[in-house]
């Protein structure tokens, strides 16, 4: 466009057309979110063909209850991964915040507080515990100069260990007994907390893809030096990213509390790996700078659908790990292929 109108005195247009326009069909087919949706639909259809009862409100409700806490920590993980970090502490934070929240709700209930007040206090405690773990991660990364892998491995150990010590391994019960009613279906298969979590997902999508918060996260993950040179306060932003991941893990901890009607120290055990799997299947690059909220949301949905589906069709659910492993391998291969393609052009 501009190149044809360059004034005689102007320079030869330095930037010319670099990439041939791809056909629309090819663009859709190479869109990872679209491919994921196809994979997920194929799973739903496959499980339904084997066991028609798979296609029911009850099963959908169950999948959503599994999906909701996973998508929270997976999106926290996604934002960390976009910034070129990793957060191994999210699973331990789920259990730890749930336990501390349960202690708080137990004592409030014992002192005769009504259920709504107790639950609001409980969610605040869970979020505060998550924020605390996130803050410790940020301090270890920014000031103790630990790499994120080590920093969050430290808090993983500390949080999961403390959860077990404080509870002696047993769930903390004694909160409001009617809280579990909240996770029963409300509209179709959707319970109220699931609807709230879907709202949070939409907000996160906006903040990652439409707002300055996300822009800075991508910039730091893409080239931290350039981000710093452009005047972005990289340390402060990294701190926000890990605190957000912790807060989301705290919310997931509270959700598990509702589901179990108690705080179990083991409730988030190993979930960091599911979260990372959802993020990778969703097309994010662990090297940073790449990722979509929609991809992670569908990635988490695929993981939870596989688990439920295998149980319902009567296959040992341990096969889930194998299926997930294959999906990760495919997603990572696509990522690598796309990278070499980008270099070639």
């Amino acid at each position: 466009m501009a190149s044809t109108e360059a004034k005689p005195a102007g320079p030869a247009a330095p930037v010319t057309q670099v990439v041939a326009p791809t056909s629309r069909l090819k663009a859709i087919l190479s869109n990872q979110q679209f491919l994921l949706l196809v994979v997920w639909l194929a799973m739903v259809i496959g499980f339904t063909l084997i066991k028609p009862i798979f296609f029911s409100v009850d099963v959908a409700a169950n999948i959503l209850l599994d999906w909701a806490p996973l998508v929270l920590i997976a999106l926290g993980q996604l934002i960390v991964v976009i910034s070129a970090g990793i957060d191994l502490s999210v699973g331990a934070t789920v259990g730890f915040s749930g336990v501390i929240g349960a202690f708080a709700m137990k004592s409030l209930t014992a002192s005769g507080q009504a259920t709504p007040t107790t639950l609001i206090a409980g969610v605040l405690v869970c979020v505060a515990v998550g924020a605390l773990v996130g803050t410790i991660n940020a301090l270890l990364i920014n000031y103790a100069r630990l790499v994120p892998f080590i920093a969050t491995l430290v808090t993983l150990g500390a949080a999961s260990g403390l959860s077990l010590v404080l509870t002696k391994g047993a769930p903390i019960m004694g909160g409001p007994t009617d809280a579990i009613m909240l996770v029963t279906p409300w509209i179709g298969p959707f319970s109220k907390p699931v609807v709230v979590i879907i709202g949070i997902v939409v907000l996160l999508w906006l903040f990652v893809h439409k707002a300055r918060f996300g822009r800075y996260t991508f910039a730091i993950g893409s080239n931290a030096f350039a981000a710093r040179a452009a005047g972005i306060n990289v340390k402060r932003h990294i701190a926000k990213v890990y605190v957000l991941s912790g807060v989301l893990a705290g919310l997931a901890g509270f959700f598990f509390y509702l589901r179990l009607n108690g705080g179990a120290p083991t409730s988030g055990f190993g979930m960091e790996l599911d979260a990372i799997a959802a993020v990778v299947i969703g097309g994010a690059a662990l090297a940073g700078g790449v990722g979509r909220v929609s991809g992670t949301v569908i990635g988490a949905l695929i993981l939870t659908t596989v688990t439920s589906g295998l149980i319902i069709i009567g296959v040992d659910p341990s096969w889930k790990r194998v299926v997930v492993a294959v999906l990760i391998a495919i997603a990572a291969t696509l990522q690598a292929l796309r990278k070499t393609e980008g270099r070639a052009s």
């Binding site: 822009r215 991508f218 910039a219 993950g221 893409s222 080239n223 030096f225 350039a226 981000a227 040179a229 700078g289 790449v290």
Partner: peptide, 8 residues
């Protein structure tokens, strides 16, 4: 060599 964020 390091002025830009390549993914943006």
């Amino acid at each position: 060599d390091s002025g830009l964020a390549p993914h943006l």
